[in-house]
Nucleic acid binder design. Sequence first.
RNA 1: UGACACCUGGUACC
DNA 2: GGTACCAGGTGTCA
Lengths: 162, 162
Amino acid sequence: MVYIMEFKVDGACRGNGQPGSTAVAVACLFTRNGTYIPKARHLPPDNPVPTNQRAEIRAIIIALKWALVRYSELSMGPYMDVRIKSDSKYVVNSMTTWIYKWIDNGWYNAAGRPVVNTDLFQRAFALQNKISQIGKVTYAWIPREENLDADIECKEALDRIQ
Amino acid sequence: MVYIMEFKVDGACRGNGQPGSTAVAVACLFTRNGTYIPKARHLPPDNPVPTNQRAEIRAIIIALKWALVRYSELSMGPYMDVRIKSDSKYVVNSMTTWIYKWIDNGWYNAAGRPVVNTDLFQRAFALQNKISQIGKVTYAWIPREENLDADIECKEALDRIQ
RNA sequence: UGACACCUGGUACC
DNA sequence: GGTACCAGGTGTCA
């Protein structure tokens, strides 16, 4: 028995790179009939300052957590096939390749500087490892134009918090 | 001997951004007594799809061509002073500033994507260069409210083609 | 140097 | 409410 979960995720950060920025992360869970259920989270306004990158990672975390909760609700303990699509090469490459290098080298980037957003990457990696024990997680990059659902949900979530 | 030509130009695109849009470009040549002679052109319905921006550039081209034809009709080979007013900052800034940057950088915009409508900009630039050998071309931005003559001519031209 | 995002602003066209 | 286009900028990595 295989339980497939397909997500599109996105993050948005109004005023990115400027003081007072506000950010939102969204995961959209797609159902068999082509519709989706969105889940949005507001990023804390500081500590650290929200950025577009943090929002994109945070969106991955929403999906991974969601998959684990869903699994816990299922009685038959199926094999989980979690598929996450993001338009951020930064997060997709981070989660699929770079993170293994960082774990290996003590979290330093190619420029010799400490990797940024390690807190979120480690949270995501821990969740991913949990899922690995009951299935698998795959990430795919899609262009922005194919991520409009999640993009719209982000903007609406931002509008709601103003 | 200086021959001054003053134009107001405008473009309009019904259904801009939607399939089946139709567009028109107009140049109005102003005469010493305050009246003007309009010249309108219909944009081809595809290849590429007409847009408001293409219509605005096309309007510049009408004026530039007109100036060259008029020059060829004059026997005394005067110094041409061609003045074009448009309510599109996009075209005015493109023709006065950005085009030099684009020529320099191989036609990439600030986002690193290829500049759009290069075909029309290059046509306009070639005409402008021809005039530069016999005079000069200056562009000025005017607010929409000061461009009502050309605006009305556009709408009428659109109505004529339906 | 490259890439993908995330914005801020502006004008027009509908 | 939307699209068509541009200029500036940051966030991050290889």
